[in-house]
Design a binder for these strands. Structure first.
Length: 815
RNA sequence: GCCGGGAUGGCGGAAAGGAAGACGCAACGGACUUAAAAUCCGUUGGGAGCUUGCUCCCGUGAGGGUUCGAAUCCCUCUCCCGGCACCA
């Protein structure tokens, strides 16, 4: 064949694959399936190296699995709703829809040029009304199940993006997208009760293999705490104040109580407090701070005394009530019992305001109980100054005190979660309209399912300011109430795009479906996803919402499985000069440029070779060149092999051994942890061997061709185009996609002589050539008489011999 | 602060308690060539010694331990990366 010309052969094969619809997934219930999924791309202008890495890894898995006789589903689609489309609309004066579909065309072209084995027949575009109508459908099902509600809530408001953000989209008090400081704003918004599923989301038993850190991150995010709710009676209000604590064993050490500034009792307390003005002044200050600075992390603890008291449930003592800036309204009951001796935060507060500190847990390291402590003692210990509980271990005390409180009706066991309900409202245009109607007579009613989809109006003015642009589109806003048929108005909020991505993988698994969100049987066949691949940045958001969504669909009878993704691989970033590729750093390498220069196969090979999938990959064009050289070497070797003239068959056995070892190594490395980098290294070793040996012409031609065919097959998942071309040249009649992965046998060695290491007292002293069937004693005899090792053994007694077959022998001598 | 993950040549990285540094990059030397590119061959962890191709010593962040044998297991510490962070 001619010189290796990647562009020509890659485009040739990409056309053929498309022509034959080679990658079209078929629903064959009796065949074992494998669902390989990569996180679909957001429809920004074009794909970057991160995508290339993600999709290449997926493609290797897909091609490998299909060659191992799995029925494969390997789909692709586009995460097409979201803010940037609107930003582009404002900036470039282009309609979000037009912008999005233009980008989809670019991305689709780029993906095809990468030669990924996607089933193009099942593309999903989330901004297509045939897709998002089912978001609306599910919203209505959730609504009917009581899982959706509306409430006025202090929302995270990004003044730059002019929109509400979910808690997960706020990172250290800043907007996840633009980095602006997030403010609070009270808005009526739609929530989904993910908190009802907190306990089930903590159960990871039905997940097979996820990175441990992702599970940990989700666990922390859900943040389960077990403890006790305690009621402190406030005589002046004739009301009980409920606090939550995980340290009920320290109850006797409570010296004051702190309410969050947002606590509902605060307003009542102001009215009866002698310190009314001081409190109002303090609340004003707190409000201002929380409005301007969300960076509460470094905020100094401050508070104000109310001069109102609560009654301790056990001692009946009067406990002063404070209002403090360090108590969160969003967690627990919004009020805490302060135990300064055993909680560092309370300790700092108590020091500042000179509040009493009462020690009730004895640190085992203390010889006697100190008069003063420097900081709170937060670890377990023995209970003291605690009435009938004295002497108990604090862990046991937790149970005992709680039991006692339950008995006297002053408290109960309680569990709290950090997880908050999922706010899905967005005051935006480019998203799924929430299918709710406000009727003056009937109130808040869901849209009739028959009227779905509620389509986004095309004519719209996007300003990027304040409320949803849909508020100003009358044809959208005005509607009829599905109950009374009277005039009514639509909800103008649209849905968070994480709703779209919570079930897109079900839509893939159900081809050409019109009247339902998906076909239950086909979805139950393909799902759960056998291997999901994507970035670690979705460890909480997308993956938790999807798990939740699927559990709800399971409860509603839509699907028969409870977890969407059995195995998860989070690939590392592609970095250059020590930083993630980004426009602002000016270190972006465009995949298309690389493809033009070297071809897709070389780019794929480099990305797979440079690092194992889950660690960050340092970009190196020199490394790309190395891969380019390798493929050229393969190509030249192919030509040498097809023109090969045999002289003798001396090395046939060795060649068979080498290819067998290679197949075994590559298969095991893929099966183990998708260690594609070492797979490629092994193939390089094989090519190095063959390249050196072929000129000696010690192989018979048919053995050589047979081995070469096997080699092409195992290289195929990594660099499919060049392999198809060589395969065709060898008169392969089939696409490699339809060939079987070669098998291998367990062979230890075929060599007549092998080298093993020789250790004396565990230190390597050299090596010795032996025949592999020798035993420990026989090898020892050789060493004893060997010029090199003799000297170590003379006059010494051997107390131990350890022989690891074909590797090393260790002789242990007496001192 | 808490929870994860990590530290191996000049660089990316190999090594499932058994010869550390596979494979690739870079570097150096050589062949081919009028020359260059391409290609091919060789050397390449550090140090010391001499007889110059061999011998010895050291070496996987630091220190200790387990073991015949540790990059790998255990303990202590340092540094780096990631996540969470006033969650009661």
């Amino acid at each position: 064949m001619e010189k290796y010309n990647p562009e020509e052969i890659e485009i040739k094969w990409q056309k053929k694959w498309e022509e034959y619809r080679l990658y079209e997934a078929k629903y064959i219930p009796e065949k074992k399936k494998f669902y390989i999924l990569e996180m679909f791309p957001y429809t920004s202008a074009q794909i970057h190296m991160g995508h290339v890495r993600n999709y290449t890894i997926g493609d290797v898995v897909a091609r490998y699995k299909v060659m191992n006789n799995y029925n494969i589903l390997h789909p692709i689609g586009y995460d097409a709703f979201g803010l940037p489309a609107e930003n582009a609309a404002i900036k470039q004066n282009i309609h979000p829809k037009e912008w999005t579909y233009k980008n989809i065309e670019t991305i689709r072209r780029q993906l095809k040029r990468l030669g990924i084995s996607y089933c193009w027949e099942r593309e999903v575009i989330t901004c297509d009304d045939e897709y998002y109508r089912w978001n609306q459908f599910f919203f209505i099902q959730f609504f009917k199940k009581g899982l959706v509600y509306k409430k006025k809530a202090p929302a995270n408001w990004c003044p730059s993006c002019q929109t509400v953000l979910a808690n997960e989209q706020v990172i250290n008090g800043r907007c996840w997208r633009c980095g602006e400081i997030v403010e609070n704003k009270n808005l009526e918004q739609w929530f989904i009760k993910i908190t009802e599923y907190a306990e089930r989301l903590l159960d990871f038993n039905k997940i097979k293999n996820w990175p441990e850190r992702v599970i940990t991150m989700q666990r922390n995010w859900i943040g389960k705490s077990e403890g006790c709710e305690i009621y402190f009676y406030i005589p002046e209000l004739n009301e009980n104040l409920s606090v939550f604590t995980t340290r009920v064993d320290t109850l006797m050490g409570v010296t004051y109580i702190v309410l969050s500034p947002g606590h509902p009792l605060v307003n009542k307390l102001i009215e009866i407090s002698p310190k009314k003005q001081k409190i109002e002044f303090f609340l004003d200050k707190v409000k201002k701070i929380s409005l301007t600075v969300s960076d509460i992390l470094n905020l100094e603890k401050e508070g104000v005394e109310t001069d109102i008291f609560a009654i301790h449930p056990i001692t009946q003592q009067k406990i002063p009530i404070w209002i403090g800036n360090y108590v969160l309204m969003e967690y627990g009951t919004g009020a805490v019992m302060a135990v300064p001796a055993h909680d560092q935060r309370d300790f700092e507060f108590a020091q500042k305001y000179n509040l009493p500190i009462k020690i009730v847990i004895k640190n085992p390291e203390w010889k006697e109980i100190p008069e003063k402590i420097e900081k709170a003692y937060e670890n377990p210990g023995i209970m003291i100054n605690s009435w009938i509980f004295d002497g108990l271990d604090s862990e046991k005390g937790k149970k005992e005190v709680c039991k006692y409180l339950e008995k006297i009706n002053k408290g109960k066991k309680a569990i709290y979660y950090k997880l908050k309900d999922w706010c899905i409202s967005r005051q935006r245009y480019w998203g799924t309209p929430i299918p709710i109607i406000y009727c003056p007579k009937c109130g808040v009613v869901p849209e009739d399912e028959k009227n779905l989809p509620i389509k986004l109006p095309e004519e719209v003015k996007i300003t990027g300011k304040g409320e949803s642009p849909l508020k100003y589109v009358n044809e959208f806003l005005e509607c009829k109430c599905p109950v009374c048929k009277g005039d009514a108005k639509r909800e103008t909020d649209t849905m968070d795009t994480f709703v779209d991505s919570s079930w897109y993988f079900l839509r893939y698994a159900s081809k050409d479906i019109k009247d339902k969100p998906f076909d239950k049987d086909e979805v139950n066949y393909w799902m759960p996803v056998d291997q999901y691949i994507g970035g670690i940045e979705h460890a909480i958001l997308h993956l938790l919402y999807s798990r939740f969504f699927i559990k709800v669909l399971y409860d509603l009878g839509f699907v028969d499985f409870e977890e969407p993704f059995e195995n998860l691989l989070c690939q590392g970033m592609v970095i250059k000069d020590g930083a993630k590729m980004s426009k602002s750093k000016g270190n972006v390498v465009d995949p298309e440029d690389m493809i033009k220069k070297y071809g897709t196969d070389t780019l794929r090979l480099f990305i797979l070779f440079a690092a194992p999938p889950e660690v960050d990959l340092e970009w190196s064009e020199k490394g790309v060149e190395g891969c380019w050289r390798f493929l050229n070497r393969v190509w030249r070797l192919h030509n040498e092999i097809t023109n090969y003239k045999e002289q003798n068959q001396k090395n046939d056995e060795k060649l068979k051994f080498m290819i067998n070892k290679l197949i075994k190594g590559v298969t095991e490395d893929i099966e183990k942890e998708f260690q594609f980098n070492t797979c490629i290294a092994k193939m390089m070793e094989f090519i190095n061997y063959l390249g050196k040996e072929i000129n000696n012409r010690n192989f018979s031609k048919d053995i050589l061709i047979d081995c070469w065919k096997k080699f092409i097959k195992i290289l195929y998942p990594f660099t499919p185009h060049i392999c198809e071309e060589m395969w065709e040249d060898l008169n392969g009649s089939n696409f490699l996609f339809n060939e079987n992965w070669p098998s291998y046998q367990e062979i230890e060695t075929i060599e007549e002589k092998i080298n093993i290491g020789v250790q004396i007292n565990g230190k390597i002293k050299g090596n010795i050539e032996i025949s592999p069937d020798l035993n420990e004693e026989q090898i020892y005899e050789l060493i004893k008489n060997h010029e090199k090792f003799k000297k170590f053994l003379e006059g010494k007694k051997i107390i131990n011999k350890i022989y690891i077959k074909n590797k090393i022998i260790n002789l242990v001598l007496e001192d």
